[in-house]
């Protein structure tokens, strides 16, 4: 599917807005939920009903990311709203080849949340919050049993990491802390913080993208 604005030969959106209208007006869900990309094109078309469905579908994900990073309900709500506004403004340049709508929105929410915390706080995270979050993302409750296999593998790999590596990775990857901030928070040398982040990422990389023969960087 081509979904990339401005690219030669490609269409900005996979359906004309009028196609979306014909497909949904009057009977919004005749045979099942609309694809995520169709909802996004509804945003492009300025359809208020599709915009509402879009928000309803993704609000838990977006707010969850914002809340995990900011740990502040009001700030998380602001970040979540900004995420949807930004998605609305940039819906035409979403590129499905780079990931799903869910991944795209999650990345926007995460970037905005990290920037919001950097702008408002001196301490990016509290140690007890980190432990709670680490326990949460490495747990395997029943409702996650049906999660996609890739996520399950990453979750399992994260759980297998030595705790200090997992903490360093969460600080950098979730809270957006620099290696120096990780070193300060953990009271370890900068080099040790960098090594923990690097080693943890290397282990998860073997799950996400197994090494190919001839890889010159491992």
């Amino acid at each position: 599917m081509i979904f990339h604005g401005g690219r030669a030969g490609g269409r900005a959106i996979p359906w004309r807005p009028s196609d979306v209208y014909r497909g949904v007006s009057g009977y919004r869900s005749p045979v099942g939920p609309l694809p995520d990309e169709a909802l996004l094109s509804g945003l492009v078309a300025g359809d208020p009903e599709l915009a509402a469905i879009f928000v309803r579908r993704f609000q838990h994900r977006v707010f969850g990311v914002a809340m995990a990073v900011t740990r502040d309900q009001q700030l998380a709500e602001d970040v979540a709203q900004q995420t949807f506004e930004r998605a609305w403004r940039h819906a035409q340049i979403y590129d499905s080849r780079r990931g799903s709508v869910m991944t795209w929105l999650t990345a926007i929410a995460h970037n905005l949340a990290v920037d919001a915390v950097r702008a408002r706080r001196t301490e990016p995270m509290a140690p007890e919050d980190l432990e709670d979050l680490l326990d949460t993302v490495t747990a395997t409750p029943e409702e996650w049993a049906l999660a996609d296999e890739a996520s399950a593998q990453v979750r399992a790999a994260l759980a297998r990491l030595p705790r200090e590596q997992a903490r360093a990775l969460m600080m950098a990857g979730i809270y957006g802390m620099t290696a120096q901030q990780v070193a300060d928070a953990e009271r370890i040398p900068l080099g040790t913080a960098k090594t923990r982040i690097r080693t943890a990422m290397a282990r998860l990389r073997t799950v996400v993208a197994p090494a190919k023969r001839g890889d010159h960087v491992r």
Binding site: A52, V55, R56, Q59, H60, R61, F63, G64, V65, M67, A68, Q73, A76, E77, A80, Q81, G99, T103, T106, A107, H110, L133, T136, V137, A150, S151, V154, R155, L158, L169, M170, G173, I174, M201, L204, R205, V208, A209
Partner: peptide
């Protein structure tokens, strides 16, 4: 991609009433 997957593990949360 690893970073994206890591963020993808964060749990969903119920937004405040009226958010939608």
């Amino acid at each position: 991609l690893v970073g994206d997957r890591l963020v993808g593990l964060l749990p969903d949360r119920e937004p405040p009433p009226g958010f939608e």
